[in-house]
Write a protein that binds this DNA or RNA. Sequence first.
DNA 1: ACCACCTAGTTGTCTAGACGACTGGACAAA
DNA 2: TTTGTCCAGTCGTCTAGACAACTAGGTGGT
Lengths: 271, 271
Amino acid sequence: MVLAALDRCSVIPLYYQIQQRLLDQIRSGALKSGQPVPSEQEIAAGLGVSRMTARQALKSLCDLGVTYTQRGRGTFVSANKLEKNIRQVLSFTEEMRARGLRADSNVLCFETVPAVAEIASALHAASGEPLIKLHRIRLADSCPMGIECSYIPQRLCPDLLRTFDASTSLYQTLSERYGIQMAFADEVIEAALASAKEACLLRIAKGSPVFIFTRVSSVQSGQAVEYVKSTYRADRYKIAHRLTRLNRELLYPAELKELGNAQVRTAPVDG
Amino acid sequence: MVLAALDRCSVIPLYYQIQQRLLDQIRSGALKSGQPVPSEQEIAAGLGVSRMTARQALKSLCDLGVTYTQRGRGTFVSANKLEKNIRQVLSFTEEMRARGLRADSNVLCFETVPAVAEIASALHAASGEPLIKLHRIRLADSCPMGIECSYIPQRLCPDLLRTFDASTSLYQTLSERYGIQMAFADEVIEAALASAKEACLLRIAKGSPVFIFTRVSSVQSGQAVEYVKSTYRADRYKIAHRLTRLNRELLYPAELKELGNAQVRTAPVDG
DNA sequence: ACCACCTAGTTGTCTAGACGACTGGACAAA
DNA sequence: TTTGTCCAGTCGTCTAGACAACTAGGTGGT
């Protein structure tokens, strides 16, 4: 395993160049699932960087879920299929584009409204504070997929009402014009039956199964920026997502051992 | 901000002790949302560690989503409410325990079956390979919540059929007896109407809304270990989860800049 | 009033080492 | 055959620095 030399004049950090070279090897199939990637020392010696830099590159791959490490053994390529359809914080426009469909909207309502208690609480805004309300029917290749109603504090995007074309991508506009980039979102998903009005808007039979999403999107600082309530047809819309086991991260392995998990056998599934 | 001295004799790493002290400060309210945490230099000088060790502690807090950093400004506490109900890779038993309910099961079926094509493919197993099938009705405080059907390759847990009490926690047994720890799971969620048989088992009306989960759980190496298909009542079961924006992680910020996002204004939402 | 410059403080990147813990294999002793 | 020991290779942790990039505020000149 020989990696291409690094560009030491570039503004791109060395650890990131190494990460990309390893990703290329994995994507090209030169490194397959379960195989060890070059060790920290190999990378350090082979590319003329210090071990900490090589280590940072490998750590970033682990964080991405592309590899995993075993102390005393090495770093190995995960069996992950890098699925594209994993649910993320995506606007409808982005989500449909990722699936190769054309996103469109019918705008039902685009106006300023005072915040009701529930939404104000979710957005950490004052009750009654002006919010921009954007109520749209979302279409994929002209077929209605869902009804979406977004609320965003007006102070964050003062002239949005005047300048935004409500049939285009809200997230893209927020990012490009206001520097607001969604970092994560907390969402509650419910399943229900379509009401008469919803059924009519979505052109499905009353009583058909639908998803109801209640989502609060936030920027990196954790400040909530958008409250969205949506109803999606369940016959044309599935949710694919990845769950991770996080609670362990708050407990150091050595602490776990002390709690008496000592009889655990070595897993026969790691190979 | 003064942190308690470190225990240099402990097996717990210094960076982890620092992380825990900072977490304590945040949980106790001494550090509030938006406030800066001690800088790398402050921590290094105050606790007598090198800056890289302090940095590792701060990095781990960022990874947990507890803080975020701004180059040239500092590290700040996120406005995240550390919600406990975020969806994870949890067994039904664990999930109900987290909600303060008593989990129980009615076992419908517990036997060895040959793998059908769809399941074999999801588990990367040979078609026809023996799987342990565990079909259960899941009860929370004696109320039926869902129907679950799990499949696990028998080679991973040879004597499970003989030794497992099928009304207890499968994940706990897999972890304690076989060293199999689920690390992540890919899941597809659908919404549908309960069939007559499902409605009867769940004691709801036929045609009530239900969730259908199809989940493949894997260990850290990415090897798939369990295939589960479940049907849950939507009237008593909601899904709360957190979405993150990941695609950016594959693109270094400096690369983004070169792509012409230069007109982005500084976000007024970071404060 | 505005702008350019400087400076102190911060995080980001990187170096060149060190020791410890763990794995797996080779080898010798019982 | 089994057991214990040693050893090379690996990742985990930690040190003590260095320079770069960026932010925010102050200063002084225009």
